[in-house]
Design a protein around this nucleic acid. Structure first.
Lengths: 155, 155
DNA sequence: ACTGAAAATGCCAGACC
DNA sequence: GGTCTGGCATTTTCAGT
């Protein structure tokens, strides 16, 4: 079961719900040139098969009090998987951490952290990150602005 | 107009629509202990004031044929803003580029690129990125897996 | 087997309290 | 902030291709 099983109508549906998850079935079916019920069936199948993993509101982080993002590169001391799991558990518990990727190479993690200001960020570093056992080094980069905000690649 | 003007019910609403953008007003109002119409009013206000910027489906990039992500760090030759705009325009046009941030420092961009495989990634580098005028250097890092996938910070 | 149509259920928006 | 009603969307079932 892969991308091949999607026809052009399925892709059109995905494109539309990517842009607006709250489209009514009527609007959606009209846009993809189908009547409501086959359109509803296709949507349900796309959900069941996992092409659509969910529908989420997107919030304005700045308006909510977190206008600053910081990218943090974390290197763990070379130990076994226990450390990785402990680190990942901590990261998942911190609300400041929005995204986290395990990178190839030397036990490297890349994090995006959202904070109110640099004072809060310093607190995050000193009171949170450096307290996680096994953290060997930390490097921070501050973005100026977001140039492109994508949700998912579709074509 | 800032985050202060949100009370605990507003925050509860944001938390719920963040998790599921397709909740019906009935379900939503039940979860935040409100009756449907004041709940609808609050949602509308949150949308109008920009706390909620949109509702989007989240798709499974791997299932759609793009299982590999690559982080690309791009440095531009030091020139004026024309180059930045040209680069950003190009990045916005490339479907492979999901996210792009302009970083502080030396004309640095950080990109996340989604590709089918490393062959396609090489094509992206040679036929796309290196063709953009002003690109001085490119560094790629490959993640193994996504540890945390956040949508927005809320608390 | 997949598409289109129709009926019944349930949801939403507005005026009003 | 809560209640109610008219109108519409959704969903399920059923028939057609």
């Amino acid at each position: 079961m892969s991308a091949d099983s999607l026809d052009s109508i399925d892709r059109a549906i995905l494109r539309e719900v990517l842009r607006d998850a709250r489209l009514t079935l009527q609007e959606l079916s009209g846009r993809v040139n189908l009547s409501p019920s086959p359109c509803a069936r296709r949507v349900r199948i796309l959900e069941e098969r996992g092409y659509i993993s969910g529908y989420h509101a997107h919030l304005d982080e700045a308006k909510l009090g977190y206008p600053f993002s910081v990218f943090v590169s974390v290197k763990l001391a070379h130990q076994v998987d226990d450390r990785l799991q402990a680190f990942e558990q901590a990261v998942n518990a911190y609300p400041e951490v929005i995204d986290c990727w395990l990178m190839t190479g030397t036990r490297d993690y890349l994090l995006r952290v959202a904070v109110a200001d640099l004072v809060e960020f310093e607190g995050f570093l000193t009171r949170r990150l450096t307290k996680v056992p096994g953290v060997a080094s930390i490097e921070s980069s501050i973005p100026i602005r977001r140039v492109k905000k994508g949700f998912s690649r579709l074509d």
